[in-house]
């Protein structure tokens, strides 16, 4: 049975690290809809994938948060990205496989992955 002992070692390693994950106004926010509609459509693995991707790349100033129903249940799982400049992008029918591309292209390089957005979905 795994115990909490390992956590003490992690705590000791964490000491001295400066906590840079304080939320502030110039942060990028990745918001995943986690209401009944989102969860039923598969939002849980998507939320997990975003958290993991952000942690693995140790991205500073990027917060992954959850929200309730956005009101477009047929497009769930929905992920909204708010950049610090106020720009908002809505990704729809998001799958865990899309997460790395969204992180690398949009969050890191600043290029919206247009093919996954709600605008592209409406046209298609």
């Amino acid at each position: 049975m795994k115990s909490l002992a390992e956590l003490k070692a992690i705590r000791d390693r964490m000491k001295g690290q400066v906590d840079v994950r304080e939320e502030n106004s110039d942060a990028t926010r990745i918001v995943v809809g986690m209401a009944t509609c989102g969860i039923a459509a598969g939002a849980r693995p998507v939320l997990s994938a975003f958290s993991t991707a952000v942690q693995e790349r140790t991205l500073e100033n990027v917060a992954v948060v959850q929200t309730g129903c956005i009101g477009l249940c047929q497009y769930e799982p929905i992920v909204e990205v708010y950049k610090a400049n106020g720009e908002k992008t809505t990704y729809v029918k998001v799958k865990p496989e899309m997460v790395d591309e969204i992180i690398d292209q949009h969050i890191i390089k600043g290029n919206v992955v247009t093919k996954y957005t709600i605008e592209a979905s409406k046209l298609g």
Binding site: L7, K8, I10, R11, M14, D19, R21, S51, Q55, T58
Partner: peptide, 12 residues
């Protein structure tokens, strides 16, 4: 144990 609630820390 942690002395904080920083569960978003990758290791934690």
């Amino acid at each position: 144990i942690l002395g904080s609630s920083d569960f978003q820390n990758p290791e934690v």
